[in-house]
Design a protein around this nucleic acid. Structure first.
Lengths: 368, 368
DNA sequence: ATGAAAGCGCTAACAG
DNA sequence: CTGTTAGCGCTTTCAT
């Protein structure tokens, strides 16, 4: 019972018994030391302008000296503001989301917000659970490549402000990376290289981007009198690409467009194993321009997405929505265009006819 | 003022004015509906065994029906448990941390905990700020590759339970990826290929792993009568490696060991630009085996670190520490060994002497 | 400009 | 087993 406010002595005794050095100072401790009411200390931090300058300085100084820190959770309860933002991604491991996370985290930090990250494991149930568990703990969510149905998303949005990325489900505001124009250019690129028949490796069934890209691909192909086959759906991973490569070969196409770079890299890897030259025999085109796309072998031609900007935009949108009141700033989608980045994985179509290749035995030269 | 508990009507009226549909049901709403006390509802969720089975079922059912969800923050205040864990990394963008984040998140989710992610931007001040801001909001922290001083870490640890990764600062529990044995093997590997003089590209000055690796390298080199020069410190990024490549060449070494794969990949890239063959003229060795190390060109020989396991271990350690009381389970370090993974970026040392190379003009063939 | 008092939603003794 | 009563640390009317 040494130097401690008398009315707090018992508590700090309990603390001591529990093992930790000393209870962190609260608003009351500061108030006592300054001989003001707790509410004044509170104001000094939350509404500095509503407090006499002199008292404010005195309070702030003592607080600093005592090592007082506002308790964010205690603050969140009455105010209803947690200053935390939930970020849900299907797979943290996917480097695509790495850029997104980074952008989001940067934007959030800049605004004094904290990011709570959760991984839905590409599974709608897990996503729902995470959403549920976090709903009360955050001021809003950024849902990236959500696997949830439109209905569920709308429902969730009515419980807590949402921003979706790579998804369009009005009236929920969204950040879209539009790869349609770039897809068009990619097909033109392929066509100009003499490719007439190619495959599309599709991603997760519930992916909005996948559906959109496939549609773009089809419509462009039709106009250009090209042949596209769709393979999949595939898990959007390197392994998914490895597994799909043989099917690609079996289709006898001269070019593949993959749902994402991971898939494309997987294809690249398997093709090398099989001794199939890229782009000599098959051209490969990815999407996203993730970390690694520029230094894989060969460097990947891809539809570069402004991922980090998307993350930043999503958080900005959410923040704007948060402080514009419950219904303000609704449904102002931001769409960011992807751009075709040509590297070395695409090249002129081989001269021999596909029928020849189709009948060749698939020679597997297991290397690794 | 429709179907609502009478004593809550005024509140829901306020709610309505504020715009959101309806206040989320609380423990009291459920209690009223079930004609029990609020504390019983609380127990039904927190200590189910202390409640009569029948009542419990009834409560749980009504709660579910009403869409009641415990408010994590409100729950955290009296209990002092937030079920959140802070994860601080120097740079989210660095794929090394990707694996760590993933492992941590998986382990946390499995235990019903949530990960709060923060990025310190390779800066000790930012790290401290993040630590400060989050301290009250989480039950504990995992600090990965912290840039903070030992003293600061110990201090922080006394305020909130910590686990450090890639750092050793007793009595704070740590998860260490020990690359020393693998480093030894790497040098032997290099020596057996005829390399006698090589460079070490060091990472951030405050990095524990860097210091440790350098020491291991030196001691092994000394015993083998090899020459090692240390270059750096360098930012542990691809760009850092790009920038360092010329210095490596200027040193006239036949092999480079990099602090991490990012640096190594940067070196690879620059070397290709310069038309220097890897491993023909220079062998390159990375560390970590991050995403991309196996598909870059050439695939990187590296000291593979069990990153994801490290993340998992860190959270497990933290969790164990949390529920073993304030002082229990202290200082049980986990050390995970890295392993040498030989791929194609290392090969026999070139035959010509380094003096010849040293005097050649550095031919820059800017490609990209 | 400041103080007093009433919560925010939930947990945790303590009685019964 | 369940109800009552205090808070957790902070914000926010409402007075003064």
């Amino acid at each position: 019972m040494a130097a401690q406010e008398p009315d707090r002595a018992n508590r700090s005794a309990r603390r001591a018994r529990e093992g930790r050095p000393a209870r962190a100072p609260t608003i009351h401790d500061v108030a006592a030391r300054c001989a003001v009411a707790a509410s004044t200390v509170s104001r000094a931090f939350s509404h500095p302008e509503r407090v006499n300058a002199a008292t404010r300085e005195r309070i702030l100084a003592t607080a600093a000296e005592m090592g007082y820190r506002p308790h964010p959770l205690a603050r969140a309860l009455p105010s209803g503001q947690t200053r935390m933002l939930g970020l849900l991604v299907p797979d943290i491991t996917n480097p695509f989301f790495l850029g997104l996370i980074r952008g989001a985290q940067r934007a959030a930090a800049a605004a004094g917000y904290t990011i709570v990250l959760a991984d839905s494991d590409e599974c709608d149930e897990t996503e729902l659970t995470a959403l549920d568990r976090l709903t009360r703990a955050v001021d809003g969510f950024v849902l990236a490549s959500s696997r949830l149905s439109d209905a569920r998303l709308r429902e969730a949005d009515s419980a807590v402000p949402l921003v979706v990325v790579n998804r369009r489900v009005p009236p929920v505001p969204s950040v879209l990376i539009d790869s349609a124009p770039a897809t068009k250019r990619a097909v033109e690129h392929l066509a100009s290289l003499g490719h007439t028949r190619f495959a599309y490796l599709s991603g997760p069934r519930a992916s909005w981007s996948d559906a959109r890209r496939w549609r773009a691909l089809q419509s462009v192909a039709r106009r250009g009198d090209l042949d596209v086959v769709r393979l999949g759906p595939l898990p959007p991973t390197v392994d998914g690409g490895v597994a799909a490569a043989d099917a690609v070969l079996a289709e006898g196409v001269t070019a593949v467009v993959a749902f994402n770079d991971l898939l494309a890299i997987g294809v690249l890897r398997r093709l090398r194993e099989l001794g199939v030259s890229v782009p000599g025999e098959v051209s490969v085109l990815g999407c996203d321009d993730i970390f690694g796309a520029d230094f894989c072998d060969p460097p990947l031609t891809t539809l570069a997405a402004p991922i980090e900007r998307a993350g930043r935009a999503a958080v900005d949108l959410l923040l704007r929505r948060l402080d514009s009141g419950p219904s303000g700033g609704r449904h102002r989608d931001v769409v960011l265009p992807a751009t075709l980045t040509v590297r070395d994985s695409t090249g002129p179509a081989p001269v021999r006819r596909r029928d020849e290749r189709r009948n060749e035995p698939t020679q597997v030269t297991a290397t690794s």
